[in-house]
Computed example of a mutant assay.
Amino acid sequence: MDTAHARELLARERARVERELADLRTSDNADEELSHVDQHPGDEGTELFERERDAGFTDQLHDELAAIERAEQRLADGSYGRSVESGAPIPDARLEAVPWAERTVEEQAAYERR
């Protein structure tokens, strides 16, 4: 994959993740402001569910941001587009879909089964 295109893809994904994290922080602040209003007990359960869901999203976004940072480092050192495990080339179609991919599809599947 062309370095400039890879840089563009990673920048786009970084911006998306940072925007989603900011949106979650804004949502959390708005929820805190409303939590002091008298509420039905069922609303408390809904709020708890939403806080836990948002915490999960936040963790996932932080993981993606860390992976994007590692991909940017690989781009800088010239190893972008190669598996971190085997050094095999990662197909461009995979990098288009997941610009921060660290492994081939097969290696990722095996990694996730561990």
Score class of each variant (00 low, 15 high):
1 M>T: 03
4 A>V: 10
11 A>Y: 08
12 R>V: 04
12 R>Y: 03
15 A>L: 10
17 V>T: 11
19 R>G: 08
20 E>Y: 10
22 A>G: 11
23 D>M: 11
23 D>S: 14
24 L>P: 04
26 T>N: 10
27 S>Q: 12
27 S>E: 02
30 A>T: 09
31 D>V: 10
32 E>H: 09
36 H>I: 05
37 V>G: 01
37 V>F: 09
38 D>C: 02
38 D>Q: 01
39 Q>Y: 01
43 D>C: 03
44 E>D: 00
45 G>M: 03
46 T>Q: 13
46 T>S: 12
46 T>F: 13
46 T>W: 11
48 L>Q: 12
51 R>P: 03
54 D>T: 06
57 F>E: 14
57 F>C: 10
59 D>F: 07
61 L>C: 00
61 L>R: 11
61 L>G: 02
62 H>Q: 13
64 E>I: 04
64 E>C: 01
65 L>I: 07
66 A>G: 08
74 R>L: 01
79 S>T: 15
79 S>M: 06
82 R>L: 15
85 E>V: 14
86 S>M: 05
86 S>F: 05
90 I>Y: 01
91 P>T: 03
91 P>D: 11
92 D>M: 01
94 R>N: 03
94 R>A: 08
96 E>I: 14
97 A>D: 00
98 V>K: 05
110 A>L: 11
114 R>A: 12
114 R>T: 11
